Structures are given as structure tokens and as C-alpha cells.
Simulated assay, not measured.
Amino acid sequence: MPASAPSLSLTWTDHLSGCRGFLVVDRLVRGVASGGLRMRPGCTLDEVTGLARGMTLKEALHYDPEARYVPLGGAKGGIDCDPRDPEAYGVLVRYLRAVRPYVESCWTTGEDLGLSQDLVDRAAAEAGLVSSIQAVYPLLDDEPGARRRLADAFAVEVDGIGLGELVGGCGVAEAALTALDRAGVPHRGTRVAVQGLGTMGGATARFLARAGLTVVAVADIKGTIVNPAGLDVEVLLAARDGHGTVDRAALRPGDRELPGGAWLTADAEVLVPAAVSYAVDTSNQERITARWIVEAANMPVLPEAERLLAARGVTVLPDVVVNSGTNAWWWWTLFGDVGPDAPEAFAYLRRSMRGLVESMLTRAQTDGTTPRAAAHALAEERLPVIAERFGSYR
């Protein structure tokens, strides 16, 4: 889809630390846009601009005229700061104070790379906000009921992990499983490597392992843990810290430690980059032997690298579809398409993701294009329909 100028783009500088933060609103629908807030060293305005555009596409791709879920525009926030820095929380609070008028009026946000939802909620309260998603409240028919429903959903736990932390990975896993099923590849015996064991990567590893796939490699900030016979995903998840780093004391005798980039060359059919953007570039893509790359992270494969991968027969399932489940689940729950119940949420999410991935892959096959081009084409067809029905503000 051709890029257009965003509705809003701003850069903020923290007067105490010198850290910079960014907010980009790509598009408003009914005056509101949706998109998470990330914190990582090296975050840039260009990065946040691309992510905001991606959020516009994700909203459009999940548009269902029969659903209660009202599609929003796309936005994103980012802070150039290491979330492990002792001063990071103060930077987060000051950033939210600075952008408070936008959160109150038009930008609904939540956790993204480097930040948990609990941390965002705590900082938002300290910054004087009612909620990080309060801009959407005027669009609700029953605001108190909707807020209770979402709060109840976030209180649900499944095997010790919150439902809000699991839905995104469930969607990523379903995208991968749909591609395998279309290709006639059995789940059992299919090997997968995951980069990042935080909220998205950890949940994805859990759902793929429970579907019968063998997780042979996971990477965190300390390096890559591999075991050709299969890693014990549940043990690794239980041994994570708050940033997704695994305590190496939990490793089994057959588990080995390799450098951080080893996940790329793992002997696996499926790669799941679930951490940083720009992880796969033109130089390291040639070492990939997997058949599918499933983008759980935002923008992990550079465009030129994707072209080279496609020429080698490697299919990239794009982030705008693959990792859209978390955002969609928030709104399905808030607007009342699903209740605060894990089985109901997972079933609804799986149906939606499977239908979306099937549509994308069928379109790609029909048009002779990549899945990303097909996803963008689907979004381009839906955006005018959304704008005609709900109006847009640019």
C-alpha cells in the first residue's frame, strides 16, 4: 500500500535523561487510533512511523462489519531507552505525562517491546491518566460494563500465565499452523526456532509445542539455547525473568548454549523472530534454511532480505497479520465480541486468524505475490470501506 503522511508525528526529549520519545498517529478513525508503546535503545522516529502504518493495516485486516468491534486508526509510541536501565521507569512516566493530551483524546496504547502491560498501567496512573485506552471510551455503548469485562479478562490466568500475555502468541501459532496445514506438513516432527522468549515469543513457543511441533532453539539477550531433540518449553518459561531472559541453571543436560544469532541457522522448518525489528537483513538471510519465517515481532525482516528469501522459496508470513491477535483481542473483549473467558477467547482468535491467513495466502497464490503484498492488498480494499462507514480524520 502506498505510504501517506501520518496525521501526527512528534518527538519528545526528556529534560532529565536526554532520552527521546516519539509518537506517530498514522490514521484516525472516528477520531481514535490504536497502537502500543515500545521502549528500546536505538528506537527511532522512522521505526515508530513504520509501526504506526502497520497498525493501520492490522485494524483494517480485522474489520468485520458484523462484529461489535469498531476498527480504529493506527498509531505507535516509542522511547529510545534501555528498559533495564534503573532510570527507565521515570523516563516512561515523564513521556506519558508529555503525551497525556493525546492519550486522553485520540491514542489508545498498551504494552509493546520492552514494556509489560502492568508497567504501562502503573506509569499511566502515575502520569495522571485514567487508563492507557481511555480515548476509546466515548465509542462504547456501555463503558462501565466494557471496562469491567476487560479487567476481568486480564485477571484470567492459564497455567500461571495471564490471558493477556497468551493471546498474541496463540495468534502467531495459529498463523504458523495454518501455513503448515495448507502445505500438508504434519505438526509432529516439524521443528521451530524462536528468537525472543518474552510475552509474544514465550506464548508462541508454548502453543506451538502443545500443537506437536518441536522447539529446537530459543534465543534471549544472553544467547541461543538449542537442543535438536527438543527443548522443554514449560521449564524455560518458568525460568524467565521479567524481560524474557532464561536462568541458565534451569537447562537440562542435553541443552546447549550458542551465540545469540544461532537461532537463524537452526535446523528447523519454522523460524519465529519475536524480539527486535530488523533482525533479518541481506547479509544473514542467506544462512537461513527454514521454509517459513513467521513474524511475531514488528518489522523483523528487512524488505530487501524478504525479496531474497522469496527468491529462494522461503515464505515470510508478515507481522501485519501474524502478530495482530493481541490488538484484536483487546477490542473484541472491550466491545463485547468475546467475554472474559480463556477458551472463548482462544477459539475466537483461532477462527479469526485462520480465516485471515487463509485469505492472505490464497490471495498471494492467485496474484502471484508475496503474503505481505497480499495482506496489504486486502487492507487497501478494506480501508475505504471503513472510512465510508465510520469516517476518518487525516
Rank of each mutant, 00 (worst) to 15 (best):
Glu165Lys: 12
Val167Cys: 03
Gly164Asn: 06
Val167Ala: 01
Leu140Met: 04
Asp159Phe: 05
Asp141Trp: 06
Ala125Ser: 10
Cys170Ser: 14
Arg148His: 12
Arg122Asn: 06
Leu163Val: 04
Ala125His: 15
Leu166Thr: 04
Glu165Ala: 13
Val156Thr: 05
Ala155Asp: 15
Gly169Ser: 11
Leu163Gly: 01
Glu126Trp: 03
Glu165Ser: 13
Asp141Tyr: 05
Gly160Lys: 12
Arg148Ile: 02
Glu165Leu: 15
Arg147Gly: 02
Ala151Arg: 15
Gly145Lys: 09
Tyr137Trp: 14
Val167Asn: 02
Ser131Lys: 02
Gln134Pro: 03
Tyr137His: 13
Gly145Ile: 06
Val158Asn: 05
Asp159Ser: 11
Asp159Gln: 13
Ala155Leu: 08
Asp118Leu: 12
Leu129His: 06
Ala125Cys: 12
Leu163Ile: 02
Glu143Ala: 15
Ala124Val: 04
Ala151His: 11
Asp121Pro: 02
Ile133Ala: 06
Gly169Met: 05
Val120Ala: 10
Arg122Ser: 14
Gly168Asp: 03
Asp118Gly: 14
Val167Glu: 02
Cys170Asp: 02
Pro144Ser: 10
Asp141Gly: 12
Gly164Asp: 01
Ala123Val: 08
Val130Thr: 11
Pro138Asn: 03
Leu139Asn: 06
Asp142Val: 09
Ala135Tyr: 06
Val158Cys: 14
Ala127Ile: 10
Glu126Gln: 15
Leu150Phe: 12
